[in-house]
Amino acid sequence: MIEILSQTALATVQDIGRFGALRWGVGTAGAMDRMALVCGNLLLGNEEGAAAIEAQVFPFELRFDADCAFALTGADCAATLDGVPLPPWSAAKTRSGAVLRLGLPVSGKWRGARAYLCVAGGIDVPIALGSRSTQLRGAIGGLEGRALKQGDRLPLVPSIAGSPGPLEIGLVPPALAMPLEVDGCAAVRVLPAAEYDCFTQASRDALWSASWKITPQSDRYGFRLAGPNLEPLAPMEMRSHGIVPGVIQVPHGGQPIVQMCDAQPSGGYPKIGTVIEADLWRLGQAPIGSSVRFIETDWDGALAAGDETRNWLAEVRRLLDLYRTRSLGR
């Protein structure tokens, strides 16, 4: 069991996401930074998509009510276990009764917005439509379909016999291993979307050249950005149609919205672009108040970016397996 000690807000149980339910109008949900979730689970020898706690308001405090292993990834929150500092992006073992505290995200060489706590086995909440992810809009998945609150107790999946087991080591964060910046500003790659050509040339240029500030009206549903107004060549009225996380919509005001993990499955605003799936984790870690740049890419570029992250994870998996074999051989 894990007990939430802090008066928390917006922390949820998330796994890799809920796929195959969009046709019923149920969005994917899932970790905003899937790379962080997968890395934490790989360190522990879990299934890669096992459920974890996603925290985004700090400080965040919890107590382990069992001896177990855990991994912390995502934002570096200067975590301590019973007051002893823990390195970021690493796994550790703990005793029953120990208190884990996450502080405010540190502004080091990379600043994230969301921290992930994976535990050996994973967080055991009921599976809804194939996933343990909390879907706040529909109030399904996670713990009673809601955000975690003080006093909540979360059961852990018993570690499966023969599972690889945890390693008390760390990883170089993927944001450092695969940096993506333009002029010192965090960047993500974007495909022009269906209505791209319906915007003025100046607006299309601004999409690629402006810094887009992430406003406080940004959450797991979507990020509202502030920057130059994006103007259509002629007013557009569209019927609602299917949309996915990553889609950049432009409402009448001209300030874009990027749909994120809790995006509704349909919408009617014109779409100027789509953040590629391989870069959604980067955007998912962009703090409110920071800026992002959009880099134009194409289909091949988007697939190559997906290959790059998959290859990096494959190398992590391979080296962890080697290290695990060597450690057990001692």
């Binding site: 690493s90 990883l171 170089v172 291993a177």
Partner: peptide, 13 residues
């Protein structure tokens, strides 16, 4: 932890 050994993406404390 006094230092790390870096092996590719792994950080061994």
């Amino acid at each position: 932890v006094l230092g790390f050994l870096k092996i590719g993406p792994l950080l061994i404390p």
